[in-house]
């Protein structure tokens, strides 16, 4: 097996956090997080609290949909100084709702890496047209042309990554976007070096549909591996519908043949509670270049109060 280059396995998500309602459920407190080697930023975060509509997680809670914040300076972001020191420049907050009630907010923080080619988008259904989505906001790094194209497109239901996720209500992963017939921006993606995309429906209140898309290049993958787990046809167990990583991973594939019972293990807990979870850790001796998978974020996709799928990001 060829040695992986040092650059190849850097993921462009640098920090992942879960913020959860406190005991009174009136503010958000730190649930768990993955910080890699960013120990100072972790220390600055663990004691934070966010009221409704305060800071990035609080704003996402109040808005009821994902928020992308591409500039921390002079914004409502509360940890600007610590983020700057850690080289973090962009944040995405994804609220996980069951109906009107917030389960948790997942926050991703990215750094403006020169080598980073990827995008994180929030698509929203067009109020003027029932059957199409438009980019509400996004983080595109250095991909200005791709951003310009993306902001002009209307994505019909059932087409493109976001459109398919919207139609099915399920996460959709395409591992070679530039060749996918269903991906409307295939040629633009190819030009931008984008290879993989995942669309995740994140909110489905009547009249308001939101889909997150994560697009990444081979050199800076979103995560080391992404999996989609869905209930089996009887709804009794979860099975892995799809697993993707830049390089094949037979160890991960072995674990993707397991079935998950409700309440058992990390994924079973997500199913039981509707809450995202983080497992594993990679603290002081964290090495992002290592091939092994040492931590996982699992996010539920909930519709009408029921679990439709779980998307797991392995780092």
């Amino acid at each position: 097996m060829p040695q992986l280059s040092l650059k190849a396995m850097k993921t462009f998500i640098k920090v992942t956090e879960i913020w959860v309602p406190d005991k009174e459920r009136t503010q958000l407190e730190f649930g768990s997080g993955l910080y890699g080697g960013l120990i100072d930023f972790k220390a600055a975060s663990e004691q934070q609290l966010f009221a409704y509509n305060e800071g990035l997680p609080g704003k996402a809670w109040a808005a009821g949909h994902p928020i992308v914040l591409t500039k921390f300076e002079h914004s409502y972001f509360k940890r600007t100084a610590a983020a700057k020191k850690a080289g973090l420049t962009c944040g995405i907050a994804i609220p996980v709702f069951s109906g009107d009630f917030l389960m948790a907010v997942v926050v991703f923080l990215c750094g403006d890496d020169e080598d980073h080619a990827g995008a994180i988008e929030v698509w929203r259904n067009n109020p003027l047209s029932e059957n199409s989505l438009n980019v509400m906001d996004g983080y595109y790094g250095t991909l200005q042309h791709f951003e310009a194209i993306s902001r002009q497109i209307s994505m019909p239901k059932g087409q493109g990554l976001a459109g398919l996720a919207w139609e099915t209500g399920l996460p959709v992963l395409v591992n070679d976007i530039s060749k996918a017939d269903t991906f409307i921006r295939a040629s633009d993606a190819q030009q931008a070096g984008i290879s993989m995309g995942i669309g995740i429906p994140v909110s489905d209140n009547p009249g308001h549909s939101y889909v997150m898309t994560f697009l990444s290049a081979k050199a800076t993958p979103l995560a080391k591996r992404i999996q989609i787990w869905i209930p089996d046809q009887h709804g009794k167990q979860l099975i892995c519908q799809q697993g993707y990583s830049k390089n094949s991973n037979d160890l991960a594939e072995i674990f993707e043949t397991i079935t998950v019972n409700k309440g058992v293990g990390a994924l079973g807990r997500v199913w039981l509670t509707g809450m995202p979870v983080i497992t594993g850790n990679h603290e002081p001796d964290y090495n992002p270049e290592l091939d092994n998978l040492s931590s996982m974020l699992a996010i539920p996709v909930i519709k009408n109060g029921r679990l439709k799928a779980i998307v797991s990001f392995l780092f």
Partner: peptide
């Protein structure tokens, strides 16, 4: 044999591969 093959494919020792399997399993606990 599976463990051995996984280790050989990665050019690492059986012990190191065992740690990877354990770590992977811990993620799903």
């Amino acid at each position: 044999h599976t463990l051995r093959k996984l280790a050989m494919d990665r050019n690492i020792t059986l012990g190191e591969m065992a740690k990877n399997v354990i770590a992977m399993s811990e993620l799903f606990k």
